[in-house]
Amino acid sequence: MTAIVSVKNLRKAYAGGFEALKSINLDIQEGEILALLGPNGAGKTTLISTICGITTPTSGTVTVGGHDTQTDYRAARGMIGLVPQEISLEPFETVFSTVRFSRGLFGKPRDDAKIDEILAQLSLADKRDNKVITLSGGMKRRVLIAKALAHEPRVLFLDEPSAGVDVELRKDMWEVVARLKASGVTIILTTHYIEEAEAIADRVGIINKGQILLIQDKAELMAQMGKKQLRIDLAVATPDIPAALAKYELQRAPDGRSLTYTYDTNGPRTGITTLLNDLQSAGLQMTDLQTQQSSLEDIFVGMVKEEA
């Protein structure tokens, strides 16, 4: 796979000295869905705005399909569709005419059939001639997506697509995103909902305070999350781990009153039954058992906290 969007040493500092982006490096592969996860004010929107041309970078470069967004902005921007976080639409325009406006603005020749096709794809066909002001919030968000797709971009940026959207509509939005991916569009979305990243992304990037802390394949992240820990509380503290239990690679709490066993829930055998048998054989008496799973949320919260 080749990178369709390539961000190099991108910095954005505002006049007041606030550094919204601190040397961001990021390659986005063609055809993938990348979720940028981060708390409010992490720099997600600034990153997207800078790639799309709304915000001017302080330094660094961005290329889209090999075109520099500063020196060759026409070619670069022509490949990008942007769905902003805020619902920004002209209230008195009809759905069709506002989408047609977007297509023309991006220099594409008028093609009403194409626009109808996009509206149908987003289940907006029956709202075609309705004024924007009469639509519900969820529908307006779809109109924003339709506008962003009107010029048939190869890369789509969705800034918080499900902010302020109820659960049902959010699921709906995920389906829309899945369909877009199937049609070959590369999608970058920002979110602060971990479930959203888990549900639809191929890769997940965690961003905080203007830096990308981690960017990883979601499957790998899920594998990490597949790790579970079993804590065994002991009636009597043990000074060390009995040799018979060495193969379990147990961790002993400093006070010796509990042991922790890490296992993979995705593996064919967890090894819990034999461990419990072996513990008994070794003469250790258990008072309690506890399991816990590290989630994307734990990783996320952990990283963001570390940074703070």
Binding site: C52, G53, I54, Y73, R74, A75, A76, R77, G78, I80, L82, P84, E86, I87, S88, L89, E90, P91, S102, L105, F106, G107, K147
Partner: peptide, 17 residues
């Protein structure tokens, strides 16, 4: 001013114009 007011100016700024 109207696109500034409604926020739709984002489109002008991100378009290849």
């Amino acid at each position: 001013y109207f696109p500034k007011f409604t926020g739709t100016i984002y489109e002008l700024l991100s378009a290849p114009v």
